[in-house]
Amino acid sequence: MTIPVFYSISDDFTKYAAVSLQSLIKKTNPENDYTVYFLNQDLSDKHKKDLAALANDHSNVHVEFFHIDDELVKPIQNRKENYLRADFFTMSIFYRLFIPELFPQYDKAIYIDSDTVLNDDIAKLYDIELGDHLFGACTDASIQYVDKMLKYIRNVLALDPKKYINSGMLLMNSKAFRDKHFIDKFYDLLEKYHFDCIAPDQDYLNEIGDKSILHLDPRWDAMPNENTPEIENPGLIHYNLFFKPWHFTNVQYEDYFWKNAKETKFYEELKAELDNYSDEERQEDRQKLNHMLEKEDYTEKDPNNWAHVKEREIVSL
């Protein structure tokens, strides 16, 4: 059995992706075959070699690189409503949406963000039966105690915050994505409404997938959270938002990251990044979170936000 796993990556994220890949490889079952794809637009040859080298001693793990064509993502463009975290644009957040179309040989696939660490065999995630669901994912635990984000989900998206999923881990029913013309719906909504989003790709997945999402055990997307204790024996840790262990100390689940980082060539570079990250930069990161949440104030009043459009057209998007 081949388990296809996808990352989307920019060149400057290679060292974090290397830690994630190392953790994934360590937990693989020798009886399974794993093909790991890095979707990218700017990955250097040197970094490709660095990532591929991690699988050299594992005959059942294959690392591939797939260049995302500019034409494919041209309709998304660099425009304000697609800005991630309200302050900068990154095309790579959208790559995951195209996996089913770009890889028709797979009826099922896994996508994970690069700021993750595996603590269990990812084949166990892949083995979960999806049935007719579009994809499986975990409720976004990182926002359940953030009042403005809860308000945004209820009043701007008109969704249930308890069912709002995080897109950093997706168990994708690729066949259903193709059969239900997911990309066509995405492009249609994107061009027709220009929705202003706090989390662009994630909001579209929640909207289009609403009522067709299989909610998975939270151990498969365990996120640092100051309001809740660590999940015991997490399967996948996701260092979501700004509080990364390579920028902050005393981050929940940080030991998992550093244990795997030590086994990569990037360990000293990552430690130096933490040591050299200033208190001013940490304060800026905290402000970025507040800046991101400011979108709720004006998107709630937008006559063309998700909630108002759904109410006006009396149809589910």
Rank of each mutant, 00 (worst) to 15 (best):
Q287C: 07
E81Q: 10
N240Y: 00
S212Y: 02
D179M: 04
S10C: 06
K48Q: 15
V146K: 11
Y111R: 10
N227R: 02
P100R: 15
N260S: 10
K175N: 11
S114D: 00
K124V: 07
A17W: 02
A307Y: 07
I183K: 08
D160F: 06
T264D: 07
T299S: 13
K271V: 15
D275S: 14
E232C: 02
P234M: 12
Y164P: 04
K108E: 14
Y152F: 13
D147P: 05
A272L: 12
K301T: 05
K74H: 09
H238Y: 02
V61F: 04
W246D: 04
Q41C: 07
E300H: 02
T249A: 09
H194G: 03
D255S: 14
F242C: 06
D297A: 11
F13P: 00
M91H: 01
N240H: 11
Q41K: 10
A17H: 00
F135R: 04
T35C: 05
L289A: 11
Y204H: 04
A18L: 03
Y187G: 01
D113N: 12
C138L: 04
A53V: 03
K244N: 10
A109E: 02
K108V: 09
F195W: 08
F65T: 00
K74E: 14
K148N: 08
H238K: 03
Q22C: 12
A199I: 08
V309S: 05
V117K: 03
F103N: 07
K259L: 10
A137N: 12
K80V: 13
D275E: 15
V146R: 15
K244W: 09
Y298L: 02
R282A: 06
P75G: 11
N305E: 04
L130A: 14
L216C: 02
E284T: 13
A272F: 01
R96N: 08
L43P: 04
E263G: 00
F182D: 02
V156D: 10
S316D: 13
A18E: 12
T116F: 01
L171A: 06
A141G: 13
E232N: 12
R286Q: 09
P303L: 08
I314A: 12
D203A: 13
A123H: 10
Y34V: 13
D115P: 06
I231G: 08
L171T: 04
T249I: 07
E129T: 05
L21Q: 10
K262S: 07
K180N: 14
K265H: 13
N240Q: 07
F38V: 00
I93F: 09
N206L: 06
K49M: 05
V5K: 14
F248T: 07
D57G: 10
P161G: 09
M149I: 11
T35Q: 11
S114V: 12
L170M: 14
I128H: 03
D188G: 01
I231D: 02
A176R: 15
H291Y: 04
Y164C: 07
K185P: 01
I122A: 02
Q287D: 15
N276Y: 07
L317V: 14
